[in-house]
C-alpha cells in the first residue's frame, strides 16, 4: 500500500510547477552536502588522471606571461569602457540621476567539486558558499581571464555555476577585437549554440570622417564581454576567439561570427569567483 501511495505522490510532485517545489530545495541541499565530499575526491582523482589539454608548444613561463599581458590589456580596455560610462553618467547626472560608486572586488580561487547527476544540466558545483560571501549572480572566471559563467544558486558550503555557454544562460553582448593593438572592436550579440560555441551577428558600423570603418573580423580575433547586464567588474573579460566568419544567409550584408571559448568551460577544475563587497561578518559577532 505504501509503494502505490509513494508512486502516486511522485507522479503529482513531478507535475508541480517549480514555484510549488521550493520546499524540496533544503532536501536537495542536504543530499548534495552529504555527497560532495565523495564526489570532490573522485573529481580530483579524475582531473589528476585526465588533466585539461594545454598547448604543448607553450611553456609554463610563456603561459604566465601571456596571462599577465592579457590581464593588463583587460584592465586598460575596462578603463576605457569606464571612461565612456562615466562620460555617460556625467550626462545623466546633469539630468538629475543618482551616482553609484564602484564596489571593491575580491577574488576567490575555488575547486570544482562535481557536476550534476544528469548531463542535461551543465551546472558546475564549486566549494564556496554563503560564508565566503558568494551570492547568486557572482561572476566566475578561469585562467587567462576566460569567463566561465555566473553563480545560479548558493546552498550552504557549495554553489552552482551556470556556464555562460549553456543555452539556458541566454545571449551575451560581446566585442570582437578586430584591431586589438589599437583597441578597435565591433559589438555583437552572441547566442550560445549548446555545443560550447556562440554565434553572433556583428553590429553594422558606418564610417564617418572622424572614424574610419573598422577592419573585417578574422579567425583568431579575441572576443571580449561588453554587456551591461553583467557586473562592471567582469566587462572586457574574454568570451573566446573567433572560430569562423560567415555571411548571414538571412541578411547577406551582415557578417556573423562563430566564437569558441579558450577553454572547455564544462571541464574546468577550478574557477576564480569575483565577489563584490567585503567579506560578510561571521554569525555570533566579532570577538
Amino acid at each position: 500500500m505504501l509503494l502505490p501511495a509513494t508512486v502516486l505522490s511522485l507522479v503529482v510532485l513531478s507535475m508541480f510547477p517549480d514555484s510549488w517545489l521550493r520546499w524540496v530545495q533544503p532536501f536537495a541541499n542536504l543530499s548534495t552536502a552529504l555527497l560532495t565530499p565523495g564526489s570532490a575526491v573522485v573529481s580530483m582523482g579524475a582531473r589528476w588522471l585526465m588533466p585539461e589539454r594545454r598547448d604543448p608548444a607553450q611553456s609554463e613561463t610563456e603561459r604566465v606571461l601571456r596571462e599577465e599581458s592579457e590581464h593588463w590589456r583587460t584592465l586598460y580596455l575596462r578603463g576605457e569602457a569606464v571612461n565612456e560610462r562615466l562620460r555617460r553618467q556625467i550626462e545623466d547626472l546633469q539630468r538629475g540621476l543618482s551616482f553609484h560608486a564602484d564596489l571593491p572586488v575580491r577574488q576567490l580561487l575555488v575547486p570544482v567539486v562535481g557536476a550534476s547527476s544528469d548531463l542535461a544540466s551543465g551546472l558546475l558545483r564549486v566549494r564556496a558558499g554563503e560564508s565566503l560571501g558568494v551570492t547568486p549572480g557572482t561572476v566566475a572566471i578561469t585562467s587567462g581571464l576566460q569567463i566561465v559563467g555566473r553563480v545560479s544558486s548558493v546552498s550552504g558550503p557549495t554553489s552552482l555555476i551556470l556556464p555562460f555557454s549553456r543555452k539556458a544562460a541566454g545571449r551575451v553582448g560581446g566585442r570582437v577585437m578586430v584591431d586589438e593593438p589599437n583597441n578597435v572592436g565591433v559589438r555583437c550579440l552572441l547566442e550560445p549554440l549548446g555545443d560550447g560555441r556562440f554565434r553572433g551577428q556583428l553590429e553594422a558600423v558606418t564610417a564617418t570622417a572622424d572614424s574610419p570603418a573598422p577592419p573585417p573580423p578574422e579567425v583568431g580575433n579575441t572576443v571580449r564581454l561588453d554587456d551591461d547586464r553583467w557586473p562592471a567588474s567582469a566587462q572586457m573579460f574574454i568570451i573566446g576567439r573567433v572560430e569562423s566568419v560567415e555571411t548571414d544567409p538571412s541578411s547577406p550584408l551582415r557578417t556573423s561570427v562563430i566564437v569558441l571559448p579558450n577553454v572547455n568551460i564544462e571541464r574546468v577544475s577550478e574557477v576564480t569567483l569575483r565577489l563584490v563587497g567585503d567579506l560578510p561578518a561571521t554569525p555570533g559577532g566579532s570577538r
Binding site: D18, L21, R22, V24, Q25, F27, A28, S31, T32, L35, S116, S117, D118, A120, S121, G122, L123, P136, G137, R150, V151, S152, S153, L160, L162, R166, K167, A168, A169, G170
Partner: peptide, 14 residues
Amino acid sequence: LTWPQEAIGGVRSF
C-alpha cells in the same frame, strides 16, 4: 535531488 535544473535566461536553478 542532485540534478539541479537550469532556468532559462535567469540566474536561478531548482
